[in-house]
Design a protein around this nucleic acid. Structure first.
Lengths: 138, 138
DNA sequence: ACATACATTAAAATCATTCTAATCTGTTGA
DNA sequence: TCAACAGATTAGAATGATTTTAATGTATGT
């Protein structure tokens, strides 16, 4: 079977074969020019609405994890019962609106570079993320 | 029944009556001068080892949540299957060691103040947290 | 001491995530 | 091309953290 090669590289580089289901997942995640935040549940819902393809939860989890590992998606470090992912993989930060449980991007340029003076022997910093929790201002 | 008044205020201010179980939880969390990171499971295990008091999971969850809400504990924003809490409620940040799944405090003085230029109308910033993920440096 | 509101508990329920095992499909090499 | 195999898909089961339930117990104000 041959597929639209559009997402073949992305899939192969993530260690995944291109399949109907995975290509559909790619389309939902990467077709838009807008980046967005989502949970696995969200993604499954979008696919169900858009496509006549049945994709199991397990496949969605596997695929999202592979993209996350490869760096095509970023998991956002907030405490929540569900994991949130971001299609915007550029270096940036987040507001987390505690009233509405919603994430809002903060561009890297809107945060001064975070300098950490402490070091841990034998370890290097892989990423630095800033989460600013926001609430209604009364 | 009357109890050691040591933790009565803390409990009452958190909206909780002082009870045997809750006082034991307070002792484990707040008696030490050392601050520490823990999960609910950790806390239950410590109590089981130290005390001849039986405390149910539900009670531990309720009590920790009340303290977190009141600000006597802080939940640490990392993605993990379990929630991590911190008895150090001063403003500070964290390394998360991805090799060992361990948190390490970063004193506020070791991070330049984080300035965020973006604002959201009607919202105010409640907290700013920096998570720096670290890995073995090869 | 009473009445009541809150606390405790074991066990069940819930929910996200991971695993399983049976079936199916993309890929590779002859 | 096509057989064989490695990897993919799936529904459903399993897992594990957290929350809820409902019965019983306890702190508190009067």
């Amino acid at each position: 079977m041959t597929y639209d090669p559009k997402y073949e590289n992305k899939l192969r580089e993530s260690g995944l074969r291109p399949t109907k289901q995975r290509i559909k997942i790619c389309e939902v995640l990467f077709d838009s020019t807008e980046t967005f935040h989502f949970t696995i549940k969200d993604l499954v819902k979008i696919i169900e609405n858009q496509a006549n393809i049945k994709v199991s939860l397990a496949t969605v989890y596997n695929t999202v994890h592979a993209f996350n590992k490869k760096g095509y998606l970023k998991e956002i470090p907030i405490n929540s019962s569900q994991s949130y992912y971001d299609t915007n993989i550029s270096h940036h930060h987040h507001f987390f609106d505690e009233d509405e449980n919603k994430l809002i991007d903060i561009d890297q340029n809107d945060v001064d570079e975070v300098m950490i003076k402490k070091t841990i022997p034998g370890k290097k910093i892989k990423s630095i993320e800033v989460i600013a929790k926001i609430v209604t201002d009364n």
